[in-house]
Write a protein that binds this DNA or RNA. Sequence first.
DNA 1: TCTGGGGTCCTAGGACCC
DNA 2: TCTGGGGTCCTAGGACCC
Length: 405
Amino acid sequence: MEKQILHVDVNNAFLSWTAIDMLKKGSKIDIRDIPAVIGGDESKRSGIVLAKSPKAKECGIVTAETIYQAKLKCPGLQIFPSNYTIYRENSNKLFKLLSEYTDKIERFSIDECFLDMTHYLMNSTLLEKGIEINRRVKNELGFTVNVGVAHNKLLAKMASDFQKPDKVHTLWEEEIPTKMWPLPVSELFMLGKKTVPKLYHMQIKTIGDLAKSDKTMLSKKFGKHGIMMWEYANGIDNSEVKFQKEKPKGIGNSVTLPQDVRNIEQLEEILLAITEQVTYRLRKEKMIANVVNVQLRTKDFIDKTHQRKLRYATANTKEIYNKAKEILREMYKNGTPIRLVGVRVDNLEEKEHKQISLFDEIKDEKQEKQEKLDETLDMLKEKYGYQTITRAGKMNLDNYIKPKK
DNA sequence: TCTGGGGTCCTAGGACCC
DNA sequence: TCTGGGGTCCTAGGACCC
């Protein structure tokens, strides 16, 4: 049976949400109407564009470029910091409103949702529902969304990306040749900056070119990715709207340091602070990890990641830190200037599912104590806030990261 | 004042086993 | 002298998304 899918995408999400917040706090200007961007902090070496206003877009500013580049393109550009607390609040409001329409709703990102309306249309059409959602979000939440209307997720997503802002677009199968095929191949979902030049080289320039090219040839050249891009170009996508919250597969944090660090003792302190953050999140998910992964980025922007399997799955800070330290020591050549440090845990499993007996056999008293310590510290973090309770005391990340001005 | 941070999925080579 | 192949696990890195 044919699915009925909507894709809802907030227009310039971070910028719109910051604009609303500023107006609420008495701002005289709406930053949606001026050349403005939401950006990182250049003094913290994280100066990139996260979102742009329409006027900033007119200057040629693109997402993820440096603030420095953006200023060159648009001298009067105004820059505002991001605020994820506010973004999460708005995202939740949107999700709540959309949940009135179907139970089968997938939060694809902080500002995008897929809705499976197949059994929820009652007496209206899918397009009517899309138009209603577009209108209600604007009136009730104060920001605008694009809505894509189609029979699968890929086409709905492509549709919501057509003309912006505040629009509802259909992309039915019969509309593919006129609405999707003329677009440059770079517009197709999952085709990024590495693949597009390769396709161009093969004289594949539009989505239509890709759709009409030979699937077997693409498969030989790009593997699974080749099959997928051919299917997407032809509007084929059988994936389901994932409405049940999925357990994370991995959890990680990383930090760009305000200055390069070139000695291992300092790197270890940073590693501990990040590990504490990661394992805290891991324990909150009630999961344990089998793999620890350490990432280093040099001052020349060369990334290295090394990972090791743990002897048994755990969420204990000390055990994971010990493994991370082992990895760091093996991968770090003393004196190399490091710009970013990251820790990830992977191959997660649910703590409940672990067979207690087997687990306890290899767990000794020391480990029991360590786990109790984690529990206690986690409780304190819940009660008094994360920042005040770090195991390492002075080894807090704040020592390496300039406090927010 | 150059270049974020959090994810998922895939590939490929080597080790190891049968 | 010649000389398997299939499967799984582990690890590093790449591509892509928002």
